[in-house]
Design a binder for these strands. Structure first.
Ligand code: MN
Ligand code: MN
Ligand code: MN
Ligand code: MN
Lengths: 231, 231
DNA sequence: CCGGATAATAAGGTCAACCATAACAATTTT
DNA sequence: AAAATTGTTATGGTTGACCTTATTATCCGG
């Protein structure tokens, strides 16, 4: 007997939005909090050369997903933002599952879900959301976008903007490179935790925080990655 | 402040075993039940041209994962079989999760997990296995290979080898194209179900089965995909 | 308003994984 | 044994997503 053919192709069938393209869209969503990032910032974030990023930005622009204004920055179109938010939704749902159910290490969640996010069909995403009880945040405290690609941003302030003596609780930490996130984890700087700003130092110097009983020093750049809400 | 760089690259970093290569390995494991498949059979299964399959087989041969004896067939090496079984393990574990927890439609499990299988890091795979309580079979009744790439095959006989009047229970159905699997599902031909062979017809004609109260006709080629164990 | 830093573009690669067409080799059928 | 079928290889594409090196454009601080 002849074999059954697994048609159409089991192999990658050049999807409309490749993993690479999705990563550009996601990166843009992640970076575009205050000002639109330049191509170089994007390139930097994604670990590719500016030239490569430029090419890709052009392709994505041609697809109507972003707009590049030279020397000003790259902006997502409505559609581009939706797609980027969809990627983020998938990633953050998986982060919830890995953390809450599979007991995966908190600091590795981002890297471990960064491929799943491009390979999760809508049916699975939505079933997963139901299974998880439609969580509002991922384990980093970041909001999970809705099915239709909307994402309300957190209203909190960066930790470094606290005044000395002020107490606050951590809303979220920005998804950051492994070493940084591992450091957060070791210092107990997780969403929901309470902290007090004990001290600051001039010239980009570290802050001193109280976390639980301990006093810890935290670099300014790291403090900027932590969003808090004053008590 | 400068951005935090998500280095090294978030983008696909040309893995040792690409998704394509993994699919070739998996296909070979799936096809190599009785005789080693030829390159054409492989090509057919994967929905690529023979030429493409040939190229890829050469590359995989160079990597020491398979051996091609022209006109005879392609064989996996020890290492190749292990890798193929690893892919199968990941897919079948995901199938369990999707079916038992996410309540995904039985007939779509294969397609929905066919990308996840290439994007699941070992930590996640093993945590998932624990979460699922180390299942022995996937929802198709197929055995789940062990962590170290071993897979004991089912001892059952193809449904069409039953004698008339014999009863049996379904051990497994071969992962097959959507239409086929959908048909199995509609007819209630799922692992664990009881059937009786009522009748056969000559010349590759259909069999008649009793499933529950109903009598159904089943094409010979489809019957070959179902493994049963006599009562 | 000029010069250095930063950003963008141009030009010409590489590499994996596909494709088509065509020739050639082995096996099976008649 | 010749013909038909099936399997393999050779040759020469394409495409997406990267790369390096070099040039050009813009911005911004002194
Ligand atoms: Mn990713
Ligand atoms: Mn997160
Ligand atoms: Mn697959
Ligand atoms: Mn299965």
């Amino acid at each position: 007997m002849g074999d059954l053919i697994m048609q159409p192709s089991n192999l990658k069938v050049s999807p409309k939005y490749s993993e690479s393209k999705e990563m550009y869209l996601k990166a843009l969503v992640e970076l575009d909090v205050f000002v639109s990032p330049t191509v170089s910032r994007l390139a930097n974030r994604l670990g590719v050369t500016q030239v490569s990023a430029n090419e890709m930005v052009r392709r994505l622009t041609d697809q109507g997903l972003m707009i590049h204004t030279p020397y000003k920055g790259v902006n997502l179109t409505k559609k581009g933002r939706q797609l980027g938010n969809n990627v983020l939704r998938r990633q953050r749902l998986w982060e919830c599952f890995l953390y809450d159910y599979l007991k995966v290490e908190w600091s590795r969640l981002y890297e471990l879900t960064c491929n799943l996010e491009h390979n999760t069909p809508p049916e699975v995403t939505e079933s997963l959301a139901i299974y998880l009880n439609n969580p509002a945040q991922c384990p980093h405290g970041q909001p999970i976008p809705t099915v239709d690609g909307e994402c309300k941003s957190l209203k909190g302030i960066p930790l470094n903007q606290l005044g000395i003596g002020e107490s606050a609780s951590i809303l979220s930490v920005t998804e950051s490179p492994l070493e940084v996130v591992e450091h957060f984890s070791q210092q107990g700087l997780l969403p929901g935790k309470h902290i007090t700003l004990v001290n600051t130092t001039p010239l980009q110097g570290p802050l001193t925080l109280q976390v639980g009983q301990a006093h810890i020093a935290l670099g300014l750049q790291m403090a900027e990655q932590i969003l808090v809400k004053r008590d």
